[in-house]
Structure formats: C-alpha cells, structure tokens
Simulated assay, not measured.
Amino acid sequence: MAQYSIKDIENLSGIKAHTLRIWEQRYELFKPHRTDTNIRYYTDNDLKLILNVVLLSKQGYRIGAIAKMSEDEIKSNVYSLSKTDLKYEVHITELTQAMIDIDEEVFEKTIATCILQYGLTKTMLNIIYPFLVKIGYMWVTDGINPAQEHFITNLIRQKIIVAIDGQVVKYNEQTKHYLLFLPEGELHEISLLFLTYLLKSRNHRITYLGMSVPLNDVSEAVSIKNPDYLYTIFTSSPSDEDLYDYVQALSDSFAGKQVYISGIKLMSYTQTPPPNICFLHTLEEVMQHFNLSRD
C-alpha cells in the first residue's frame, strides 16, 4: 500500500497542508497514520476520501456537513457532481480511484460515460491528460506501483488505438505527412498515440513507428517514406547525460526536415535548439502549432 506525505496530499488534492490539518483536528474527517519515527503519512484510502471531500467542498458543501456524512453518502454526493461545472474533476477523481484499486469496471464505466458525453478529444484533453499528469506526480513520489501504472495506461492505450482505427481519413491538398516515433528506451506512448489521433482527424498522413526506436531505424524509415515532418516525445529517455547529444543527432540526421520534440525531459535542456528542431513544451503549444481544435 502506498504512503503519502502531507506534501504529496497537498500536491495531489490542491488543498494546503494547513487546511488539511484543520480538517483532521477540528472535524476528524480523517486520521493520518504514523511511522515508527512518528512521521505522519496517508494511505490510498485516505487519498480517495480526501479527493472526494475536496470535490464536495468546491461545490459549496460545508466541511462540517461533509464530516457528518457516511462514506457512502460522500460517494453519492460526489457522483451527483458529474452534472455540474466540476464534471471533469469528478471523472479525474474516478479514474484515480480506479487506478489505485485496479478496478477495470470503474475505469470502463467512467471512460465510456466521458466519451459518450464529451467525445474522445475533449475526454483526452480535459480528463485523461490531466489524469496522466497526476499519475506522473504519483509515480515520482512512489504513490503508485508499476502494476497500477501499467494497468491504467494499457487501458487508455487500448481506447485510443480503437479510436484511431475507427477514423476515416480523406487526404487533400492540405494533407501533410508526419513520422512519429519514441526514442530508444522510451516506452510512454499515450501522448504520441493521442497526437496520431488528432493529426489523422485533420486528414494528415501518419507513419507511426511506436516505442523505443533506434535512431538508425528512424533514418531508414525517413529514407523510405520521406515524411514532411518528424515528431518525438521525451518522457524518460534519453537520459539527462545524453539529452544534448541526442537532440544534435536528430538535427544532423534529418538536416532537411523539421523535427518536433515534446516531453518533460525538455526541462533539462537549457540551450537554444538547432534550427531544424522545434520544442513544444505544453499541450497548448502542440494544439496551437498544429491548429488542432479542442472540439
């Protein structure tokens, strides 16, 4: 079972540690556990409860009233929020709880409901993407284990692949050809899959090489397919030590091509990139650069 510090809970819930302590001491909403050295920590069940309490408090429920509710009453009231302005946050919390519990039924029900109500694009942008950001933080703080991460990311991956396969692309004079790949050692492909979905939805041609592709293999594919652009994402690879050399190798290998790069690893890159390399740091930058709609 994962253990969260009060700082972790603060970052995951958006509630200041001072407020959390008030909720504990004045309202006895939850009781932190203690290590052998008397350091407070919280469990998965505590996190799930706190996330639900936060949703209710944002909707105007008084903390004193929430404290008097049973766990089932809290869950029922949270479910009713799916019809309010907090609908996205409710679904993100549902996915977080499904991941912690490795509950495929809850995941499937949540995702199916979201796609039916908002469509895949809005579901990805407003629910799944923020959820993946939360997963990233939980991974860094050991808040989830590999089984939980693989469980949830594989289910999301399946949904996107089905959506990609269901697209009907009509090429036209505005169609461009993109070659998408992840560098060798990089296995986090959900963002790349979603970009594939978005680009295909705008009638662009995609050559998708997938995860952990050696640079020599990318070069061979480029020589065969001659794409207009290349796109890759750095999440865990290359290493900080190899980052600058790899970016330069991309620039040198594809001197006549525009190469787009996104991913958290770019935070470690502090120099100006080579002329044919374009960094897109945020999802908003990606959407704006490629004229991708949120609808």
Rank of each mutant, 00 (worst) to 15 (best):
I127G: 06
M287E: 02
V162W: 10
Q25S: 12
L187D: 07
D245F: 12
G136R: 01
Y244R: 14
A249N: 14
D36T: 10
K109R: 13
H188L: 11
Y88P: 01
I66P: 09
I6L: 09
K109T: 13
D72E: 15
D101L: 12
H281N: 15
P275C: 00
D8F: 03
E73Y: 10
Y229P: 10
M287Y: 09
M1C: 01
P238W: 14
I63N: 05
D85A: 12
K159P: 00
D217A: 13
Y61L: 10
L95D: 05
E105F: 05
L12T: 02
R34M: 06
Q117L: 04
D85Q: 12
I206K: 04
L199Q: 07
K75Y: 06
S76W: 04
H150Q: 11
F131I: 12
E71C: 08
L230R: 12
I102S: 12
G166K: 13
Y171G: 00
S57F: 04
E173K: 14
I63L: 15
K83L: 06
L47Y: 02
D85T: 11
L192D: 07
L179S: 06
N276T: 08
T207W: 04
L198H: 03
V213M: 03
I233E: 09
E189L: 14
E186F: 08
E173G: 01
M267P: 00
T37F: 08
L283R: 03
T207L: 06
L155S: 09
L29M: 13
T110L: 07
L81S: 05
A249Y: 06
F30H: 08
D165L: 08
N52L: 10
K68A: 14
L215M: 07
H204F: 00
L199D: 07
H289Q: 13
I63K: 06
T123M: 11
Y41F: 15
H18P: 09
N77L: 09
I190G: 05
H281K: 15
L292A: 08
Q148T: 07
L47T: 01
H204Y: 00
